[in-house]
Design a protein around this nucleic acid. Sequence first.
DNA 1: ATACCTCCCTGTGGGC
DNA 2: TGCCCACAGGGAGGTA
Length: 276
Amino acid sequence: MPELPDVEGFRRVLESCARGRVVRRVEVRDTGVLHGVGARGLRDALEGRRFAEPERRGKWLLARTDGPTLLLHFGMTGLLLCDDPDAPAAGPDAAPDAPATPPQAHDRVLFTLDDGHRLRYRDQRKLRGLWLAHDESDLDRLLARQGPDALTVGRDDLAAALATRRGRLKTTLTDQSVLAGLGNLLADEILWRARLRPDRRARDLTPAELRRLHARMRATLRSAVPAGRVPPRASWLTGHRDDPDPVCPRCGTPLRRTRMGGRGTVWCPRCQGDGD
DNA sequence: ATACCTCCCTGTGGGC
DNA sequence: TGCCCACAGGGAGGTA
């Protein structure tokens, strides 16, 4: 489920695959992922354009070109893939000029580049998709409701963002208008590391707790970003979400499972239970 | 204004 | 065996 580290990984895919390359062909295989633009409009806007330096903002990926900017959001099941044009054709029956890897059922939009590489936006569930921004004001309008980015936010700005929030800490951290980039798994992971109960009121954190939260958030993101995902390691809380009878990897206490803001929430009643 | 609820999307797995 | 439903969760939109 793409969160900040995943999208950072997709940014690297886009950068290495497409930066400096011209879009030769845009193939929309499912218009259901397009927002505010049709297949024809997307094609006309992007074919012949050259990809520039991509950018990530929260969970959004900005594919800048020398013209419009394509905005990608990956929802829960989205991916960005890059085909290697030098990979051997798939199977003995493949035509000589066939793409190395045929489109799969969930490949919704394909971008063929002038060097033969091909980008694929793949998404099983189509919860989000692709937007097109013709200029900076389009871009600002689409991203207007985002809070500061979780990867770069300073401690004081984080404190300020939480200071007025009466809601629960967990749901506040995943509210993109408060802080951009954290999803359900990261929020649980960070709160567990910071030893903070997810149902604390966001604005009630002490200065010491805010420092802890900020430090643990940074450390967690620093580990997850290079991996391009929230690593499901045994030493991480995330590594135990789906265990049948999960226990805390730190203290062995059975983990508690609740629902917060409609999302599954996992936390340790011992590590995160005291001191509030 | 803030906080919470329902729905969208699709595939999977459990229960009967 | 096959059907039905809950569930996964990012975010929009509506309501309290």
